[in-house]
């Protein structure tokens, strides 16, 4: 079984995430780039399967700027067998559709039985990539799985939506995305980090994937405005009447 795990580098949610108001692009100086936590859980799903099934090959795939190899090295340290990085200046400001086209082309080149992604990133929050990639690869896409079981020829799981709870099954090859209901990822240990240095690491350009981006049908940013930061209001320490004072505050502001 060959499993491709999608890794996205995102600004750390603990940092100050900023957008450049001129370009509409992420200001990378604002917060430390890290592997999005949900991707580590996705990798854990693959590693858990590989622990039980010998002959499983796990490839970590990411697209993004020159800082991305650090994130991919972490995935290798956790136990992925190899890593692929798509790096190309033409991808700066790529919209979701182009991003999905590039990821799908890279997966086709790598080859796969199963693609595992996180359900939603902490920065874009679109959760579109897994389904777009599934469509472009022509395979089933079982997204938002809260529970996953992988067998040699199928993947089953549960998916909660606004309509209800679905039991789902997809024959392989397939794409899945998992939610944070899945277990926390293991930590890379010293042995894993040392071994990671010797694992195959491939860097691809758009030329390698036969993709030439066009300006047609692209989602473009017209305008970015920063909302003024919230400021603290009144803070009181309870001296026995804080509940009453709060009720007065709510009444004065017509909130009750």
């Amino acid at each position: 079984m060959k499993i491709v795990v999608l890794i996205k580098e995102v600004p750390d949610t603990w940092g100050d995430r900023r957008l450049n108001s001129e370009t509409g692009l992420l200001d990378r100086a604002g917060a430390e780039p890290v592997v999005d936590e949900i991707n580590e859980r996705a990798l854990e799903v693959a590693l858990t399967y590989a622990d039980a099934q010998t002959g499983t090959e796990i490839v970590a795939l990411a697209i993004g700027p020159a800082s991305v190899p650090t994130s991919l090295r972490k995935a290798l340290g956790m136990g992925a067998d190899s890593a692929v990085h798509v790096l190309d200046d033409a991808l700066v400001g790529a919209d979701i559709t182009l991003t999905a086209q590039v990821i799908a082309a890279a997966i086709k080149r790598i080859g796969f039985d199963l693609v595992i992604a996180g359900n939603v990133s902490t920065d874009g929050g679109g959760s579109a990539i897994p389904s777009m990639v599934a469509e472009l690869l022509g395979v089933p896409g079982a997204t938002y799985l809260n529970a996953v079981e992988i067998t040699v020829d199928a993947v089953t799981g549960r998916r909660e939506t606004e309509a209800g709870s679905f039991g789902v099954k997809a024959a392989l090859p397939a794409v899945i995305s998992i939610t944070e209901a899945l277990p926390d990822a293991r930590f890379p240990n010293f042995k894993g980090i040392m071994a990671a240095k010797k694992k195959p690491f491939e860097t691809l350009s758009l030329g390698d994937l036969d993709i030439t981006p066009t300006e047609e049908s692209r989602s473009i940013v017209l305008n970015v405005t920063q909302r003024p930061a919230r400021t603290a209001g009144t803070v009181i320490t309870d001296e026995g009447d804080a509940g009453q004072q709060l009720a007065d505050f709510l009444a004065k502001n017509q909130l009750i």
């Binding site: 995430r17 957008l19 509409g24 300006e215 047609e216 049908s217 692209r218 989602s219 473009i220 940013v221 017209l222 305008n223 970015v224 405005t225 920063q226 909302r227 930061a229």
Partner: peptide, 12 residues
């Protein structure tokens, strides 16, 4: 909600 962003399609 820290930023408000407007977007559109370049065509289509």
């Amino acid at each position: 909600g820290s930023y408000l962003v407007d977007s559109a399609a370049s065509s289509g």
